[in-house]
């Protein structure tokens, strides 16, 4: 076992690298090396894919939402075909089919995948752990209001909760309502109000007073 804790590239290993090697980690190394040796993949492709995934984050979705708040034409395009609208802003979302669902005064949207863990990963990055949990997957289609309550979100009884179950080929993003008193805020500042949870529908955008909090 090496004691210098440096990888061949000279960088320190992450903490995860110092725990005992597991069967499944061994399998990952083996599959990766076999696919490279047999010419199916290259090490560079794998690194590029990891870098591309690391570059995706809720900040990308926040830019899309903020743009839709200030640009009615973009918003119309987003609601018609969210995938194309995101690509038009320069986001590489791969082959993902995306639908944007708009919150209104009468409707609050929330996204779930009951059969597995489908998530708009090519825009927002990898899903949070709770999104993949039995608890969220099971309960959101039956008692969404209780689930939202656990996220600190109470939806008034006169507002319809609309749950979207990503069962097949589509991925979803919620277009939350623009917070009050933000008419004079520029697009870049508006984007800072848009949280990951508000785009899944388990939260709302931040209030103006929380902007620099």
């Amino acid at each position: 076992m090496p004691h210098d804790h440096l990888s061949p590239s000279g960088h320190p290993y992450r903490a995860d690298d110092d725990t005992p090697l597991t069967y499944w980690q061994t399998m990952e190394i083996a599959v990766r090396e076999l696919l490279i040796e047999k010419g199916h993949l290259s090490a560079v492709e794998i690194q590029h894919q990891i870098d591309a995934m690391d570059a995706r984050s809720p900040a990308n979705g926040a830019k899309v939402v903020a743009k839709s708040w200030v640009d009615p034409e973009f918003k119309a395009a987003l609601l018609k075909d969210a995938g194309s609208a995101c690509r038009s802003l320069g986001f590489d979302i791969g082959p993902m089919h995306l639908i944007a669902v708009e919150n209104t005064d009468d409707i609050h949207n929330v996204i779930v995948c009951t059969l597995c863990s489908c998530y708009p990963r090519n825009l927002l990055g990898l899903p949070p752990d709770w999104y993949k949990s039995r608890e969220y997957r099971s309960r959101t289609v039956k008692e969404p209001r209780k689930v939202l309550g656990e996220f600190g979100l109470e939806v008034a009884p006169n507002i319809e909760v609309r749950v979207h179950d990503s069962t097949a080929d589509m991925r979803y993003i919620v277009l939350p309502n623009r917070p009050p008193d933000t008419e004079s805020l520029p697009e870049e500042e508006l984007a800072k109000l848009v949280t990951r949870d508000s785009m899944i529908g388990v939260g709302l955008p931040k209030h103006l007073s929380e902007l620099n909090a």
């Binding site: 992450r14 995860d16 990766r32 690391d54 009951t114 709770w130 039995r134 997957r137 289609v141 039956k142």
Partner: peptide
């Protein structure tokens, strides 16, 4: 599992390790 009874949601989050990203 849609509609099955289940407990409260755990909000703990872990950072992805290199091997998971791979």
């Amino acid at each position: 599992m849609g509609g099955d009874p289940a407990g409260t949601i755990d909000h703990d989050q872990h950072d992805f390790a290199l091997w998971e990203k791979r």
